[in-house]
Design a binder for these strands. Structure first.
Lengths: 193, 193
DNA sequence: TTGACAACAGAACAAACGTTCTTTATATTG
DNA sequence: CAATATAAAGAACGTTTGTTCTGTTGTCAA
């Protein structure tokens, strides 16, 4: 049982690199053991624990749970340091956390720094749910005069306006069409190594 | 050439359902043909077109391009807006983008606003790769006097210091132990609906 | 000290797999 | 109409795969 989580880790790392679950022979290498039959026993237990499953052809494939990451709720404090409990327990799948409706969700890379004060930087990836309406205060991807732009939706004298979150940029007061492409529901940033 | 895109479609559909590329025999079914050698010829062409590739073990795996969808909205750009990159694939697109080594990656919810100027807000989820060393300039999760904290690592007079990204917070100059828990490699934010 | 169990190793084997080579049918093109 | 390319079928074959069954080793409790 305890060793199985180590085997799972190795399998996850292998999968992250190669995007498949290899043959038993290869898994002997990955796991650092010499017996194919034992590899099978391990995989069977991982399947019982619902980390992997088999296709009708008998090939092993990962389940959703395979991609879950340990989540240390409120362990880290970015403000004043505070005593902390150990990390354990909860697991999260990043995609499930951000995406509710895959067919309506699209990823858009943010260009420019017009939303820096909202914590949205150049190069961040916005998770956008495509829909035609939004509420005041939502951060929306709008199509203004045939251009996509990411701004906060607001209302001024009965007309919709788009507020940047950066004083260096002007408020956009669309004359003519203000078409909503979608609403910002998530944000992803990757730091380069 | 023209038929290959049909075969690619079928392969994409199969992959979406089973998350792997099956044997040549199975692909005969999927493609609706009867010849394994022709399957191989097709896959070889798809590999030349960079939709799939092979692991060192000879197994076929999809490339990034395999998941890319033709996006109808062509590149609209001007001013300060955005570029659109639509993606297919229900799960683990974002995960794959952020996580290189699953076994060393953990998620931590950020508390406080000491890093707001770095675009890190209260409630954001930090994607942290656990390791003991970091470079100057990295944003790290450090253990200072038994407390976790998220700060930028810097050096001052030969000693490591932790800089917040908010002038309202003081620079931390650890006397005694400065232990690195991990390095920030990604950030995820979810906007409430 | 013995017995039981968990954690592996190893061998044996049929079925499946990928590869290569040869052949055939259908279009295309000049 | 002939030459040629494309799209596939099919057979042959050595290798790999998953599976099952039988051993081996270490540990720990009775």
């Amino acid at each position: 049982m305890s060793k199985d989580s180590e085997y799972l880790n190795r399998l996850q790392d292998y999968y992250a690199e190669w995007k498949n679950i290899p043959s038993y022979a290869k898994l002997c290498e990955v796991f650092g053991i010499a017996s194919k039959s034992w590899v099978k026993a391990i995989l069977t237990r991982l399947a019982d624990a619902d980390f992997i499953e088999r296709t009708p052809d008998g090939r092993w494939i990962p389940t959703r749970q395979f991609f879950s990451r340990p989540h240390a709720e409120s362990t880290v404090q970015a403000g004043m340091p505070v005593s902390v409990t150990a990390t354990q327990g909860e697991y999260f799948v990043i995609d499930e956390m951000l995406v509710d409706t895959p067919s309506k969700t699209t990823l858009i890379t943010v260009k420019g720094d017009s939303m820096v004060d909202a914590g949205i930087q150049d190069g961040d990836v916005a998770v956008v749910e495509k829909r035609l309406t939004a509420n005041i205060g939502d951060i929306v991807v709008a199509i203004v005069d045939n251009d996509f732009t990411l701004k906060t939706l607001d209302k001024e004298n009965g007309a919709f306006i788009l507020r940047p979150a950066n004083p260096a940029y002007p408020v956009i007061r669309p004359q003519g069409t203000l078409e909503i492409f979608g609403v910002l529901i998530g944000l992803v940033r990757k730091y380069k190594r």
